[in-house]
Amino acid sequence: MIATLASALIDGLALSMLYFMIASGFSLIFGLEGIVNFAHGSLFMLGAFVSYEVVSYTGSFYLGLAAAGLSMAIIGALIESGLLRKKFGNEMAIIMITLGVMYVIHHGALIRYGAASSTYRKIPSYLQGTLKPGQLILNNYQLFIIVLGLIIAGAVFLFLNRTNVGLIVRAGIDDVDMARALGANTRRTFTLVFAIGSALAGLGGAASVGWIYASVDLGLSYLFFAFAIVVIGGLGSFKGTFYGSLLAGITHELFAYFIPFLAGPSLFILMAAILLFKPEGLAGGAKQ
């Protein structure tokens, strides 16, 4: 019982971190720029495939991770500066453009990879086994995802709270005019944040391959997850996104271990509860 619970918690935490990696970028971009990036899930999926390709080709797991993060950062920056910037402030146009990008990536990936899922086993051996402290059995790879997620969460938190750019971002989340008043080069900040958010999605996708698999469907699923978590955590709140991810991931795995038929809808059950009882989200909604 204890052992199962521990495994459920570890899996839950690992899932939480994947959720966090997709949702934090989504939430940051939405909070700062008011942009709902419908292509965000596609970047996660693309990140998964980039790492799949790189790992298959070079055999280096970490190179795959880095390549996924880096390439998604570049793609994100290109999307922001090439397409979105010209339509800034026009919500409908932004939605259409990100949907268009999503459409292209989704169907492009379908052409390249088809509907089947792919995975690799070329992760370093020390990530493959299990740890067995006492009676517990813990998967190394899940532990790795948790560590990676926590490092990323810490880094983003430090970025927001300790750097000048982070200060501008936080000011911008409250009030874009205020950020301008701080003398910020908001344009460059926006591109930077978009790139960072996209890189997080790419990293999340890459990290998920070793545990789950890479498949085109991931794009839409993880877009929905990001939506759901942002709703649960509170629109535009970074802390809320973190707590929302934890709640969603752990709930999912607890259900999966103990009441399996509720695991799938668990995210949506949470969302329904939030909608009914606390529509401003866990963090109280920094921005409505």
């Binding site: 939405f30 709902v36 929905f224 809808p265 949506f268």
Partner: peptide, 23 residues
């Protein structure tokens, strides 16, 4: 605005996720 877009999708997903389940 955007909050409605989020919540309408959330609402739909709640029902859809039921229809997609074995249960």
């Amino acid at each position: 605005g955007i909050p409605f877009t989020f919540f309408s999708l959330a609402f739909a997903m709640i029902v859809l996720s039921m229809y997609q389940k074995r249960l």
